[in-house]
Design a protein around this nucleic acid. Structure first.
Lengths: 327, 327
DNA sequence: AAGGATCCTGAAAACGTTTTCATAGGCGGC
DNA sequence: GCCGCCTATGAAAACGTTTTCAGGATCCTT
C-alpha cells in the first residue's frame, strides 16, 4: 500500500535504523547513504510526519493565533512570522479566533494537543488576563496585545505614545473637539485610549470616547450616529484599520469631506489609506519587525527557559496626510 | 512527566481502551464514561494528536496552498475554507507559495508527509500543467486557477466571460483604446486575457496586451511607463486586485484623474475600490462561495472517489463605478 | 431453562518512525 | 600482536494512541 521506511530499508538492503540515519543526520557511510537515497527515489518514499513527531517528541511546528486574518495588520504580521518560521525549518499552524474567547480557548487547547514547539498569540483582553504560563508546556509569545506584567514574553507597539502622538498632531493642526473611537476587545485599544486621554488632558481638552467591536461595520454605524449629533467632534481618532475604514465610509455617507468636514486619524498604514484622497493620517506599525521579533523571542525562550520575561516595545511612526491638514 | 492515556486509565480504574472509547464514540457505559471524564479533568489530560493520527491513519486535516495571503482575494477565500473545514471538525494548514513553483512543490510534498485528508490549491500555470492526480494519495481541489481538463476537481470564475464583460462595459461607455494588463503566472489571467481579446475583436477593436508579475509594484511601474507613451490607451483593464492597485498608484502619480484621464476597470471588489473616489469599476468574485464550494468538492470526492472530475464555474458580477463613467 | 445474540470491557497488537543498546569491525597505541 | 577505543550498523524498544480480538455478562427468544 503506502511505502514506509521498512520498504526503503528492504530495497536498500539495510536496516530501518540506517535509513532513518541516512535521511537525518546520523553517522552513515557514504556508500550506504547513496544506496538509501537511491532506494528512496525508487520507492517514492515520503516520511510520515505524525510518526516522526510521535517518536521524536518534537513537532517542529509553531502556532499562530490571531483575531482575524482579514485584518491587514494580522496578515502582514503572519507573513513575517511564517517566513521566519519556515526559515528555521518549522511549520506553521494559523488560526483565526474572531475575537471570540471561546475559540481562543479552543485553539490553545488544540496547540497543546498538537504538542507544538511554541505559540505566537494575539489574545483578547479577557483571555490575556487569565493566561497563566504554568498552564502551557510551550513558550507563548504575545503580539499586539499584552497580558498581565511578568506573564509572557511579548512584542507590542508603544500604544500610549502613539495615541498621544495623534492628539498632539491634531492639536497642532488646530483641531480642538477631538474624539476617539476605540476597539472593545483588546488591551491595545485601551492603551491607545489611555494615551489619547492623557494627551487631551495635557492640552486642557475634554476627551470624548466611544467603544465598538473592532470591525468596519459596527464602526461605520457608530460614527454615522456620532456625526449626526448636534455637537459633533471635528476630529476623530480611530484605533485600528478596520475601524478607520468604517469611519471613512460613514464620513462619505454623511457627505462630510475631510479634512474640512471632519478630520480623521487612525492606525495601520494600509495601502488604501494613501489612495483615499487626500490621504489618511495614520500611525504606521512596523509589522514585519513585530513578526520577526515574536519569533526571535520564541526561539530565545526555547533556548533559555529560565530567562526573565521580556517585553519588546516598538515605536509607531506618524504619517501625516491630507485627512488632518487643518481647518 | 506529560500525562498520557495510561495515566487517565489508572486514575479511572479502567483500561486504556475504555478511556479511548469514552473520549471517542465507542460504546461505553454511562458510569464508566463519567469516571473517565472525571479522571481526565483530574489529570488535565490532553490527547496527543500525532499519536492519534498515526494509529488511526486519519489526519483530519486539510491543506490550503495559495499564492499570497496578502492578496485580499486569497485571504477572503481562506477564511471561507477555514470556516468550512473547522465546521467539519478538520484542522487547516495554510501555506503561501509566492507564485514560486519550487515552493509549490515543497508544500505539496509537505502535504503528502502530513498525510492530509485533502488539499485546496491555487497553482501557478506552470505547476498546474504538470499536476497528475495519480501522484497524490489525497483529493486535490484547484481554486481560482485551473489545470488541464479532466485532471482535478476545481472551482473557478468564468474568467473569459468576465474579461469580455469589462470590454463590453467600457465600449458601451464610449471607450475605444482599451488596453489590458494581465498577470503572468496564472491560467486565470490568461483566460481573462482571452475574454478581453475575443470581445475586442468582436467590437472590431485592436487588443493591446501587456503582462506583469501579479503584484502591485511591478504593475505600477509598467502602467507608469505605458501612460508616458505617446499613444497611450484611454482605458485600462487590470487582471487582479493587486495589479489594479498598482495601476491606481501609477495613474495618480501621472496626474491622470479617472475616468477623464484614464478609465480603470479591474477584478476583485475589495473595500478600498469603493473608497477611491469616484470608485473603481470591478468584477466581484464570489469569494465565500468559492471557498465553500472547494470544500464541498473535496468532501464529495472523499465520499465518492470514482466519481468523474467536476469543475464548478461561478459567475462574477460587474460593479460599475465612477472610474468608467465615460469620456 | 437453554441457546444465541448483544453489549461492554480489557489485553494486546498495531501505526511508522527514532533512538537506545549491543555488536562487529577497523584502527592506533602499547 | 594484543588490547582498548571508536565508528558504523542492526535488532529491538519506545513514542501514545486506536483498534482488533476475545471473553464475560446480560438479555431475549424459544
Amino acid at each position: 500500500m503506502t511505502v514506509g521506511i521498512r520498504d526503503v530499508a528492504r530495497a536498500a538492503g539495510v536496516s530501518t535504523a540506517t535509513v532513518s540515519r541516512a535521511l537525518g543526520k546520523g553517522p552513515v557511510s557514504d556508500a550506504l547513504r547513496e544506496q538509501v537515497e537511491a532506494a528512496v527515489r525508487a520507492t517514492g518514499y515520503r516520511p510520515n510526519l505524525s510518526a516522526r513527531r510521535l517518536r521524536s517528541q518534537s513537532a517542529q511546528t509553531i502556532g499562530l493565533i490571531v483575531a482575524d486574518i482579514r485584518n491587514p495588520f494580522f496578515t502582514a504580521v503572519s507573513r513575517a512570522v511564517e517566513d521566519a518560521a519556515y526559515q528555521a525549518g518549522m511549520r506553521l499552524i494559523l488560526c483565526n479566533t474572531g475575537e471570540d474567547a471561546e475559540r481562543e480557548a479552543l485553539y490553545l487547547r488544540l496547540m497543546q494537543e498538537e504538542r507544538v514547539t511554541g505559540v505566537v498569540f494575539a489574545p483578547t483582553r479577557r483571555t490575556a488576563e487569565r493566561l497563566r504560563p504554568e498552564d502551557f508546556a510551550f513558550p507563548l509569545v504575545l503580539i499586539d496585545r499584552t497580558g498581565p506584567p511578568g506573564g509572557h514574553d511579548g512584542v507590542v507597539l508603544d500604544n500610549v505614545a502613539a495615541g498621544a502622538a495623534l492628539v498632539d498632531h491634531l492639536v497642532e493642526r488646530g483641531y480642538r473637539r477631538i474624539a476617539g473611537l476605540f476597539g472593545s476587545t483588546s488591551s491595545t485599544a485601551e492603551e491607545r485610549r489611555d494615551g489619547y486621554v492623557a494627551a487631551m488632558r495635557r492640552h486642557g481638552l475634554a476627551p470624548q470616547i466611544r467603544t465598538v467591536p473592532p470591525e468596519a461595520d459596527p464602526a461605520q454605524a457608530e460614527v454615522a450616529r456620532w456625526l449626526a449629533e448636534p455637537d459633533r467632534p471635528d476630529a476623530l481618532i480611530l484605533s485600528n484599520g478596520l475601524i478607520l475604514m468604517g469611519a471613512v465610509r460613514a464620513a462619505r455617507a454623511a457627505g462630510l469631506p475631510w479634512p474640512g468636514g471632519i478630520a480623521l486619524a487612525g492606525f495601520d498604514n494600509e495601502p488604501w489609506t494613501e489612495l483615499v484622497e487626500p490621504g489618511l493620517t495614520v500611525i504606521e506599525q512596523p509589522v514585519a519587525e513585530i513578526g520577526a521579533q515574536a519569533i526571535g523571542l520564541l526561539f530565545d525562550r526555547l533556548k533559555h527557559p529560565g530567562q526573565p520575561v521580556r517585553k519588546v516595545v516598538l515605536s509607531g511612526r506618524l504619517i501625516a496626510r491630507g485627512s488632518t491638514a487643518g481647518r
